[in-house]
């Protein structure tokens, strides 16, 4: 269960760390661009997990399905982030700021 000498836990913990950092960014930052970066990190954490588990299965067979999932997900993530950036650009154009706390008209 230790494919290349690096224990599995290392990858898993890294993934969790990435995910946690992403969440921290999502929850606390003000700058909208940083949210996009945080989102990337969240996705990367999940991807890393998949890749790790794809290699971790008995017989050292790398599961092509998981890998293709990751690849597809990266593509999709690109699309998602593009949409997100488009939002950010529109918001910046309309409001002239990247601070998400200024976008608080919708309440109650």
């Amino acid at each position: 269960m230790i494919p290349y000498g690096v224990p599995l836990e290392f990858f898993l913990i890294t993934a969790v760390f990435l995910y946690a950092v992403g969440f921290y960014i999502m929850a606390t930052k003000r700058n909208m661009i940083k949210f996009i970066i945080g989102l990337e990190l969240l996705l990367d954490g999940a991807h890393l997990n998949f890749i790790t588990f794809a290699t971790a299965w008995p017989g050292f067979v790398i599961d092509p399905l998981a890998q293709s999932l990751v690849i597809i997900s990266i593509c999709i993530g690109g699309g998602v982030i593009a949409v997100g950036l488009a939002f950010v650009i529109r918001a910046y154009n309309l409001r002239g700021t990247l601070d998400i706390r200024k976008l608080n008209e919708l309440r109650h």
Partner: peptide, 9 residues
């Protein structure tokens, strides 16, 4: 999008 990543994770 955060929810999607959580599902993925």
């Amino acid at each position: 999008a955060f929810g999607s990543t959580l599902i993925l994770f």
